[in-house]
Amino acid sequence: MRRYLRLYAAFVRFAIQRSLQFRLDFFFRVGMDVIWNLHYLVFYGVLTLESPTIGGWNADQLRLFLGSLFVLDGAQMTLFANNHWAFPGLVNKGDLDYHLVRPISPLFMVSLRDFAVNSFLNLVIAVGILVWAFARYPEPIPAASIAVYLALLLAGLVLHHALHLLALLPVFWMQGGSGLRDVFFIVDAANGRPVRVFKGWAYRFFTVVLPLGVIVNFPVRVLFEGPGLEIVVHVLLATLAGVAVLLFVWRLGLRAYGSASS
């Protein structure tokens, strides 16, 4: 474990050095992420002009939901996004070979090799928005609820990473392309909707089959409904299942991987 932490610290050091070389790009990406946050705030701001609640949440609750969504997005952009983007290329060009021969987990390498320093700044901005949303929330939220919320949001981050990588793994069999990346980008929008807007089969789909509606929605529910066992168990089971399926498909994929230029 200490070896992995040392290695990760080195990744972060390299990333900081790299980002200092391309300062203009650094600010472009920060700007892009801020606009991404704003486009969600405007979207829900406009909808709440017409309806007092969306998916059962009022404007104050939606602000907390969006703040949480931005923090999760900032974290996944910082830790995983560049790696997700690069992964299909590693398989298509055979560059995955270099990770397979190293004496560390190749899944660790393809997941965390590139730390996005510019997105880390966005994470800081997102935390600021979340703190603002907490400050504007009119009712007191118990500390225990906030603690459980934070733990579940962390589990949601792991689940999101697992689902995203799972969408890329078909590249092992597709002989080129980028797996189901484009489809995932679209379906992932469900993560940015209050899950209770979905009814019937759609609700079950986004909370059980493809649990994108669990990632941010369920931790946020803890803030309003308290840390109920049902919510906690649901998030943890979804996360464990997501990671288990990822590991299973990853192993199948490595067996199918035909090395250079497969």
Partner: peptide, 23 residues
């Protein structure tokens, strides 16, 4: 797939807005 998913998301969001606003 992409079109159906996008259309479905729009459907459910607007359904929530219309039902919850009562308009």
């Amino acid at each position: 797939v992409v079109f159906l998913v996008e259309a479905m998301l729009a459907w459910f969001v607007w359904q929530a807005v219309f039902v919850e606003s009562g308009r």
